[in-house]
Nucleic acid binder design. Structure first.
Lengths: 217, 217
DNA sequence: TAATATTTTTAGTCTAATCTAAAATAAGTT
DNA sequence: AACTTATTTTAGATTAGACTAAAAATATTA
């Protein structure tokens, strides 16, 4: 099995690969892991020794098949636990991320199989992210970042990119949740800010907010 | 907060203090922790620095108030998770100990508060051990070790000392579970073995088995 | 293309937790 | 009381994971 730190690095690299394509820079990894580049180099070299990533000095890192499998397994556990925390223990969606970061490292196949069944095989976590299946397959739905949409377009919120408490609470305060219908009423090209319609209300939102909302059109 | 290793040592010392009274020897701790005496000494000294145990070289170790509080909190978490695994995920009672040993280290007050409520504030875990309350109070019921009982006496099984899979499966095979009525039909003074009545069956059991069954008379 | 800036890696420390081997203390026995 | 044995502690090494500071490679810009 893999250490907690190894799993966290692999998960981090996986997430970075989703957004940027091509090899991931050491600095990007260090930044996301809240650590120093030297520490990241260290770990990347260990992961490379174990053939979980392929790495060329100064050229960046990519996950191998094996590394991606580990990352996806951890992500599956994280998201299933999030569902448990929200559905069964009545946590708010902004409270679960931190706890799930611990629970995702519990080692037991059987536990996850049973948890999945107990939760009735959920497809998405409370933030709208798809839950990988046992074999690591991830249901990829086509979704747009709200910031890329234009005036007059609409769709429903199917996911959030950020999962920080501050951001989720911002959404809660405005009654914006997964499943909410959102329409772009106006878009300012200078700063990318928008006016959006949510139910019967209208909100001004900055580009930064819009970049963190995934919409299915 | 405390490290996983620190929590495990404290828990270990707590359990040893329940059985033997007086200061706990370094060897006893090392043995229970499956480690070397030198490693135990090391950790004990660290725990002493943090005032979680009181320790005098060569004389043994006892928990301080603070140390006992940490131990009890971990035990509370362990036992609540065991209830969850058996009651909600339908694990067998012999499968849960290992998983709970991981879950007991998850750090979140709120999680445990909610888990406790979700499980409807259970008083005992699947092995019959009492679950400490939020403030660390443990319901102590008077119970006897079966091996100390004599011919003709009877009572019901309220707990087991061992929680290894092998032992619990041994009991399962004979339909002995928490709540089962047990009567001592005979006792051999030479080796402490017994013949017991369980429901309509009779079993021969060794002293070692009898020492691991707690009976309420 | 040379100079400068940025990124990445290496070298050397540090801490927690473990180990082995050796030394110190305590307990048991003649 | 002295010798032997068992227990416990110390000393020194190791590993994972992190750090700082310095060196090396790459990228940028004049």
């Amino acid at each position: 099995m893999y250490t907690r730190a190894e799993e966290n690095y692999l998960k981090c690299i996986f997430h970075l690969e989703q957004e940027h394509k091509g090899a991931i820079s050491t600095n990007a990894i260090a930044q996301m892991m809240n650590t120093k580049a030297s520490s990241a180099t260290d770990m990347i070299q260990r992961l490379a020794d174990k053939e979980l990533v392929s790495y060329r000095r100064y050229k960046g890192t990519t996950l191998t098949k094996a590394g991606a499998a580990v990352a996806v397994a951890v992500i599956r556990k994280h998201r299933l636990w999030e569902v448990f925390l929200v559905e069964k223990l009545n946590f708010q969606w902004d409270e679960v991320h931190v706890i799930a970061e611990q629970l995702e490292h519990i080692q037991s196949e059987e536990l996850i199989t049973r948890l999945d069944k107990f939760l009735d095989h959920p497809d998405y976590d409370p933030h709208g992210d798809p839950i990988p299946d046992k074999d690591g397959n991830i249901k990829r739905t086509e979704k747009k970042v709200l910031s890329e949409m234009n005036k007059g377009q609409h769709g429903i919120l199917v996911g959030v990119r950020e999962t920080s408490g501050e951001f989720l609470q911002y959404l809660d305060k405005r009654n914006i949740a997964i499943g909410t219908k959102i329409k772009v009423l106006g878009k300012e090209f200078f700063d990318g800010s928008m006016i959006i319609q949510v139910k019967r209300e209208q909100f001004f939102i900055s580009k930064k907010i819009a970049e963190n909302l995934y919409i299915q059109v």
